[in-house]
Design a protein around this nucleic acid. Structure first.
Ligand SMILES: [Mn+2]
Ligand SMILES: [Mn+2]
Ligand SMILES: [Mn+2]
Ligand SMILES: [Mn+2]
Lengths: 221, 221
DNA sequence: ATATGTATTTAGATTAATCTAATCATTTAT
DNA sequence: ATAAATGATTAGATTAATCTAAATACATAT
């Protein structure tokens, strides 16, 4: 299995992600959209990837990862999340700054480096956004059952364990309101008409939009 | 000043290096040789670099860096040497393993990352091979006067402060004989006919070839 | 089933980075 | 000063990754 180019690694990651969320073959436009390129470019690339047996692709039918492709995806994701952890834990970056840099660092090719970094960080199981970090064998830590904050029942104490949107704008918004991983939350009230939620966080009341609360993952204590 | 491609950064570094050691305009073949490519590829690339005002280039006359080009070179060298330091100091890599990985890491584009890394490492002045690390402004620490071990007078105590060859084979050879930066050396005898040198290192006598002793930099205590 | 619209692929170009083989320029040696 | 050797450039191809515009296939609604 030869090394992948940066572009190939990025595509493989995107396919991995889309496969997960839509649970059916990934269409050319979905990919083009996610990768922020044109459909014609995607068609070219999926040809190459399928040539290398990283995906199964049939004209007009979309694509999905082979086992080899999944392994490749997990390797890249492992690197990405380890680097994000490094940037936050060791270099004191904010969690909203690290994704972009990790997009580059994830392409560094050295298994030894990855494993030494892992060790240096004390084998973290989750990255700064609460996403699981694949281990050397590509295995992901299994989480206790978790919900989106928007689905958490009223008056049930819970803890914030992740976010499903790592965009700088969202994360900065959370920072402003003292919302971090590990913090306790309780839903005090919810309004049917717009699904906005009143929550208690850090002893302060806060009203969250449906958009926000649907992107925050919590776990009941 | 737009970002440079990896290839451009590598060429700029090579020109910087060659300019230093040969002290005259860098020829196409010198560069081709150093970059391990073909002269025709170099001609193409120096055209591009000169187009971007990173070098001055005239057909058949070789090239040299402009001020902008020198700044670019120093930025890349800074990243390279900081990463090498990180790999040795924090991740416990051997000094013979880090160059290759740093060749990749040096292309990560984030000034903030570079500066935070610098801080994390406590603003090191020299990398694991004894080469100076440019600071934020591209300034290199000036060394006390130093010599090559091959030029060190007999019976003058000195300290090893650098190597001018960072190839894995040479560094492994040094490791085998306990030769590291910071270690004390004294030349006991030197033989005219092949310039081999008898040295005392770590309380042990050792005979070094001219090839070896000409690549070790020392400083008189 | 036919038409319409959307998804996807093709055709044809472009740009960076590389190569080989051929040509041209400069330097050096006779 | 001329020839030979060395150094450098050009011409022409190739490959990855991208694009625009045109063509085609598939899905859906009437
Ligand atoms: Mn990320
Ligand atoms: Mn990436
Ligand atoms: Mn190096
Ligand atoms: Mn490099």
């Amino acid at each position: 299995m030869k090394e992948l180019t940066q572009s190939e690694e990025n595509y493989i990651k995107a396919i991995y992600y889309l496969q997960k969320v839509m649970d059916k073959p990934v269409g050319t436009n979905d990919l083009a959209n996610r990768m922020d390129t044109k459909a014609s470019s995607v068609t070219d690339m999926v040809r190459r990837l399928s040539e290398k047996d990283l995906i199964i692709y049939e004209k007009y039918k979309g694509c999905e990862l082979t086992i080899t492709g999944q392994e490749a995806a997990l390797k890249t994701i492992r690197k990405h999340r380890l680097w994000e952890t490094f940037l936050v834990e060791k270099l004191n970056f904010g969690w909203e700054e690290v994704h972009e840099i990790a997009e580059q660092l994830e392409h560094i090719q050295s298994v030894k480096l990855t494993n030494k970094l892992d060790e240096f960080l004390d084998f973290p199981k989750f990255d700064p956004h609460g996403d699981p970090i694949p281990d050397q064998n590509g295995k992901l830590a299994q989480r206790e059952e978790s919900f989106k904050l928007i689905d958490l029942e009223v008056n049930v104490p819970a803890i914030i364990i992740g976010v499903s949107d790592s965009s700088a704008s969202f994360l900065k918004y959370l920072d402003k309101h003292g919302i971090q991983l590990g913090v306790a939350v309780k839903v005090i009230d919810r309004f049917e008409f717009d699904h906005s939620t009143e929550v208690l966080i850090n002893d302060k009341m806060l009203s969250l939009s449906a958009a926000a609360s649907s992107k925050i993952t919590v776990q009941v204590k």
